[in-house]
């Protein structure tokens, strides 16, 4: 609890960007998040792993309040998450989110997907939004696809476009919920590459993934979740070399053998 008492004194860039305190969440009778405490500092890359149904997606989605919580507090950049309305929309615009199924807007071109948020949410001038969007599409390697519709792109290209769309909001943090799980194996690499370069550039990231290679190389911390609880929280080298809990050992023996 020393950490908590310090939090008030820390300011600016020292205080955690994302902080969950005693968070509980139920889906009906199902206790999906059980007294979860987590803090993520600026520039930190936290990878969340764990068996299916352990609550990883739910955890990720509570951070921008796509899922409301039943008790506990979540603060982002020092502010408790607003409950609803414009304040919540503003918070969400500061937290980029990348989904397993890409969720690009199907009736808009790739370029429009990327410029929509800046124009409609940030009220940016269309021309400057377009310039930035093209630069971002270039950064993720799909500048040539700008005027196509999502259905015309491969999965890997769509996911890179979705990352560009999130980056266009100049978010303070990015949430990834199994960004490569819906991809054909040959496309996983191109998406992980973009994510690795983001991590290297100092983006604060929470990444739910089954890509242990990414966890080893890009993460500052690995969190192992099981049954709605954060069971382990350790630097990747330590976690993979000697997981403390039986459940983590068991999980790793399953995922690392194939």
């Amino acid at each position: 609890m020393t950490e908590r008492s310090q939090a008030g004194e820390l300011s600016g860039t020292d205080r955690p960007l994302i902080r969950l305190d005693g968070v509980n969440k139920w889906f009906g009778p199902l206790h999906v998040l059980q007294d979860v405490n987590l803090s993520v500092n600026r520039g930190e890359v936290v990878v969340v792993i764990g068996p299916s149904g352990s609550g990883k997606s739910t955890l990720c989605r509570t951070i921008n309040r796509l899922e409301p919580i039943n008790s506990g507090t979540i603060t982002f950049d020092g502010q408790p998450l607003p409950a609803e309305g414009r304040a919540l929309a503003r918070l969400r615009s500061e937290v980029g989110m990348v989904f397993q199924s890409f969720n690009l807007f199907a009736h808009k071109t790739i370029l429009e997907n990327v410029t929509l948020g800046p124009i409609k949410v940030r009220k940016e001038k269309p021309e400057s939004a377009r310039q930035r969007a093209l630069a971002l599409l270039d950064r993720v390697g799909i500048a040539s696809q700008a005027n196509k519709f999502p259905a015309q792109l491969s999965g890997g290209q769509q996911q890179r476009a979705a990352i560009a769309r999130a980056l266009a909001m100049q978010p303070k943090a990015m949430l990834f919920d199994e960004p490569t799980s819906a991809l054909d194996p040959e496309m996983v690499g191109e998406v992980l590459e973009v994510m690795t370069s983001l991590a290297a550039d100092g983006m604060t990231m929470v990444v739910v993934t089954h890509e242990m290679g990414f966890a080893r190389h890009a993460a500052n911390r690995v969190i192992f979740m099981a049954d709605g609880q954060l069971v382990e929280d350790a630097p990747p080298a330590e976690f993979f070399a000697n997981p403390r809990s039986e459940r983590a050992k068991d999980f790793l023996s399953k995922v690392l053998t194939h």
Partner: peptide, 13 residues
């Protein structure tokens, strides 16, 4: 549902 979720996630009301 993912369409509306993505829209909310970038801050649309």
């Amino acid at each position: 549902a993912g369409q509306a979720e993505a829209a909310r996630a970038i801050g649309l009301t």
